[in-house]
């Protein structure tokens, strides 16, 4: 148990640092950035204390906000993502989730991809809507969401495949 907690804390800080020092500076084609810090929320153990989980997600988002001077947009989208995770899990994994025996490294790739996609798209949609904060720029919001989502999903899948190999 201690070991798992230590891993989670390590993941928390590593993801923040990677996000703000490396990924925020990519700016592919001028505006496309991956936001992989949500991998923490996506891969958090399913059996959890929900209050703590939501609070941790909020702190994670707030840290990214402080570093990137964006008010509270990351915090808002991260906390929403943490709150709606159970329904998304249920939708994408079905029965396995019901029995609470789910382990991300043991699930089928297709299911995992659906899960990642839904989570990332929801997060980015909230993030960019709040960041632009102007409904007349809806095309800009959708464009940013689409391209950044593709980038993020790609990176998330790669990272989760890389780091879960030895557990199989």
């Amino acid at each position: 148990m201690n070991n798992i907690n230590f891993n989670i804390i390590l993941q928390f800080f590593a993801l923040i640092l990677i996000q703000v020092l490396v990924l925020n500076n990519i700016n592919f084609l001028g505006y496309i950035n991956p936001y992989i810090y949500i991998l923490f929320i996506i891969l958090y153990p399913v059996k959890n204390n929900r209050l703590l989980f939501i609070f941790l997600s909020f702190t994670l988002g707030l840290f990214v906000d402080i570093f990137s001077d964006s008010g509270g947009v990351h915090a808002a989208s991260a906390v929403t993502l943490a709150f709606i995770r159970p329904p998304v899990l249920k939708f994408s994994f079905g029965m396995i989730y019901e029995h609470q025996t789910i382990k991300f490294s043991n699930t089928e790739f297709g299911n995992r991809l659906i899960y990642f996609t839904i989570m990332v798209v929801i997060h980015h949609l909230i993030l960019f809507s709040l960041e632009v904060f102007n409904i007349s720029n809806i095309i800009l919001i959708l464009k940013k969401t689409l391209f950044s989502s593709i980038f993020t999903i790609l990176l998330c899948v790669l990272i989760s495949v890389l780091f879960s190999k030895n557990q199989r």
Binding site: I54, I66, S68, D69, G72, V73, A76, F83, F133
Partner: peptide, 27 residues
């Protein structure tokens, strides 16, 4: 709890959009 935290972050967002100086959350 979700509502509370979401409210806080929304307030921070709105503050950063409307005031010239956003006091609390900055790098």
């Amino acid at each position: 709890l979700f509502l509370l935290l979401f409210g806080i972050s929304l307030a921070l967002t709105i503050q950063s959009h409307s005031y010239h100086k956003s006091k609390y959350i900055n790098s």
